[in-house]
């Protein structure tokens, strides 16, 4: 008998999980993009969170593929398809979603253990939200000079951001992440794996427990996310654009116009020539 079990297999399984998560989470985010959010007082209600989809799949299958699939799905379906691409700022969301889902998926060693699933779901969601909150606080800190010096500012920023975090975690987190995950994981366990030609996850086949190295990797990724976000949104003060223009602006602008006109003329002539051939 020839037992075939090789690397190709794992690669293609990962691709399946990636494709599955991408399609489903992408579809879900496409809807959330279209459903309006609304605020009652300070509490924001939004059906923003379909994060349970990648969470469930990350707990049942390869966590990294599910995490990357989810982030890609969101990027492709809701940002690119609807033309709502926000530039570099999207990197933050991409990385935090990936990390949150990945961590939750790695935490669950046995999907039949409901308590573990619950803890992982809320931790994954919490991690994603917390990272978002930290990014937000950094943004303000970065944008406002002498953040510490303004009386009451740090406190109020921490208070509002902290409240938003708790609200999201308790409202979206529990309603839209924890409960659906707890509902779906036991129902899907043992049913969805054979459809993809895999065997269900057990403590023996699960990836080894989270190591310090993995966590350090996550931290590095998170720092990248913060950097990207800051670069994207708070770069306003980096260059004092106006000041430099005040003096020699006219001359430079005239120079640029001349160059553009020249380029345009040359291109037109070249095009005519090319067409004449």
């Amino acid at each position: 008998m020839n037992q075939t079990q090789n690397k190709t297999m794992n690669q293609s399984q990962k691709l399946m999980v990636f494709v599955l998560t991408m399609s489903l989470y992408g579809l879900a985010t496409l809807f959330t993009e279209l459903i309006p959010k609304f605020q009652v007082g300070i509490v924001e209600f939004s059906v923003e969170y379909f994060l349970f989809i990648p969470l469930v799949l990350a707990m049942l299958f390869d966590p990294l593929s599910a995490a990357l699939g989810a982030a890609t799905g969101e990027l492709v379906f809701s940002e690119i398809m609807l033309g709502q691409f926000g530039g570099l700022g999207e990197a933050e969301k991409f990385i935090t979603v990936t990390l949150g889902v990945y961590l939750a998926g790695r935490l669950v060693r046995d999907p039949r253990n409901t308590r573990m699933v619950g803890i992982a779901a809320i931790l994954g969601t919490g991690a994603q939200l917390l990272m978002g909150t930290i990014v937000d606080i950094c943004k303000v800190q970065f944008a406002v000079e002498d953040f510490e010096a303004v009386a009451g500012l740090p406190e109020s920023v921490f208070a509002t951001e902290g409240f938003a975090f708790l609200n999201d975690l308790l409202f979206s987190g529990i309603l839209f992440c924890l409960l659906p995950t707890l509902y779906l994981v036991p129902k899907l366990y043992g049913k969805i794996e054979p459809l993809l030609g895999m065997s269900p996850r057990t403590p023996e086949t699960a990836a080894p427990a989270l190591s310090a190295k993995t966590l350090a990797g996550c931290a590095v990724a998170f720092v990248c996310a913060v950097a990207a976000e800051l670069l994207a949104t708070s770069g306003l003060e980096l260059i004092d654009w106006e000041a430099s223009w005040a003096e020699s602006g006219t001359a430079v602008a005239v120079g640029m116009i001349a160059a553009a006109v020249l380029a345009l003329a040359v291109l037109m002539v070249m095009k005519k020539k090319a067409e004449a051939k």
């Binding site: 020839n2 075939t4 079990q5 090789n6």
Partner: peptide, 10 residues
């Protein structure tokens, strides 16, 4: 089979 779908093959 057997390169993509594993199992016992002879």
């Amino acid at each position: 089979i057997p390169h993509f779908i594993t199992g016992q093959f002879s």
